[in-house]
Nucleic acid binder design. Structure first.
Lengths: 196, 196, 196, 196
DNA sequence: TATGAATGAGATTTCATTCAT
DNA sequence: TATGAATGAAATCTCATTCAT
């Protein structure tokens, strides 16, 4: 496989962007090459097939692009925090903020993941769940966190965040900072060892 | 709208059951009238169109049927509990138990809700979220719960449960009781007023 | 698999006939569901997909239908002949006559067989070649035929007939009886033991 | 039409070779410019369109190239033979040998001829059939051959050879020399005047 | 009510060909 | 000449829905 040219990459990115828009607007089920091509200003769906082997490859690209952006942003905030407790707070705050600034991306990500779950039976968020479990284990070792199941806690947090994303997306008037604060407190109380 | 005859209702129920099976087995995207008819033992997809105005109506029926069953079971357990804290615990335990005993139903529910979300822009779980908020408000009034946002807490709990359902579905070896216990402790710590 | 209804069978036959017409007229490469539907008077290509699982099944049906007709007619003539030499003559004459009366069918048969050869690498005419070899072996046992390779002779005769079919199809003025007579003499001389 | 430069001719030849490979490997139906370009090491299918007006011109070039090679080899052997009977034998033997040594070419030739027959309504092998008829007529004039229709005999021989090519291609263990010997005897008996 | 046939829209994908650079 | 991007037509197949019986 040859390296892709600059023009090629730009076109692919343009198509991926159009795909994100389409999914966010119509939902996965109603997203077709025709709709994507229209939004990308392409003259033919053939153009999409030209740049992506098939629909699955396009969707994979959407997922990995969004994931890359998200983990870049959120990961940076986590790394700045000194303690596991701080990292947990950073993760929640950065995630909620990302949902607000990139809510089209999140929407698309969720739609794809859910639609394709049926096909591949995969459990999503594996990477992120691993990272969260790492934070939890570190906090338990350092004595900052109480003794709980890192797996269950990670799943709970990760999906609570998904729920929040959904509600923030559906209600434009909702205040993301308040959601973030509430979640921070919730999981702080649920994980800390010593009651305040 | 004429009242539906007994035979009519039986047929509709049969079709709804087949739809649940189909979605649970193939996923929403691959669920077609043809597949549903095959599983229902119907000789023609025309039969489905005869009993349901269109696909959306069938799916709505699936959702409301499953919801009715779930609310019946879970609601009964909640009503038995005397205090808001006990109701919270009962809700979590009954929900996880329901996921285990009715996982085909849950699967179908999630698939439909997610696939059709885009079309109706509805936020899912509205009924349940209201009920949860009621519990939280009661606990706050009685002084059993601390001061937090009932909306955010309800969303967090509801989706944490969804996440658990997903993981229990994907991993047949996982222990539902352990997941339930962990969640009970998590939300107990997150909601109670007095540290233990 | 349920038995097919009368109407179903008639529709299938109608589609098969239209397919034969289309292939004979346009050649296999340019035969599409669209062209077949047009000739069959169908409103949509979906109708073809409704009655045949896919294109391959339709083509198989064409082949087996034509084969059935051909072997019925030719086989009957062969069975009437008392000696291997007579059967050989009957086979050639009946075949050439069939090409004349059913030249659309033959054309379609050849086109399909050749187009699909690429896909399945199968050698065509297997059934007929076996039958021919049987005749040759019987004649050799009875002393009527000389000692030659039944395989090679069968292949030579079968494809010589194909060539004749092709030329009779391309040249409407050609006299089939003369072609038949010449072939009969050719293979009589090539197979008989005693020179006349 | 401008004379083609050396480089131009080399490119065309390279593309024709790649086309032969592709057809022999995939069959005509699956042969696309994309596949040909890949095998020719070209970076774009546009290159093929640049050197050939359209697909038909490329295929015609393949046919005439292969024909030229075959006629050169087989023709040389025929010319060495002194009598029509000898020429007939030489034609058969050289043809079978050619099938063995150039079976990719033969395969491509047959595929194209068959796939495109429909478009041009041409009967194949015209050149060769003329040559064969010439041999037959000469033998009839010299008294070496009996009185038969040169046209029919030519068609029969030509297609019998095609059949043999097919079977040799499909069965790598078959012995070409035996097939050649059998065919020589067959057509010797069928054409000679005096029984041996 | 039930059946199976019919419809027509729409989806993905492949392809030959054209065009700007 | 060569490249790769772009185009638009066409092909097969699936599907929800309608209709006559």
């Amino acid at each position: 496989m040859r390296a892709k040219s600059f023009t090629e990459e730009r076109r692919r990115a343009q198509i991926v962007e159009a795909a994100i828009d389409t999914i966010a607007e119509l939902g996965y089920a109603r997203t077709s090459f025709g709709q994507i091509a229209k939004r990308a200003g392409l003259s033919s769906t053939g153009m999409i097939s030209y740049h992506f082997r098939n629909k699955a490859e396009l969707m994979n690209q959407v997922v990995s692009d969004v994931y890359a952006v998200a983990t870049g942003i959120v990961g940076a905030r986590i790394d700045e925090a000194p303690t596991p407790g701080g990292q947990l707070r950073a993760f929640i705050e950065a995630s909620v903020r990302f949902y607000r600034t990139h809510h089209r991306h999140m929407r698309a990500l969720t739609e794809i993941w859910l639609a394709e779950r049926s096909e591949e039976r995969a459990v999503p968020h594996q990477q992120e769940l691993q990272a969260l479990q790492g934070i939890f284990r570190a906090g338990q070792r350092s004595g900052e966190f109480r003794d709980f199941s890192p797996e269950v806690m990670a799943v709970a947090l990760r999906h609570a965040l998904d729920g929040v994303a959904l509600h923030l997306g559906a209600d434009p008037d909702a205040d993301p900072d308040r959601y973030a604060d509430e979640l921070v407190t919730l999981f702080d109380l649920a994980t800390r060892k010593e009651p305040r």
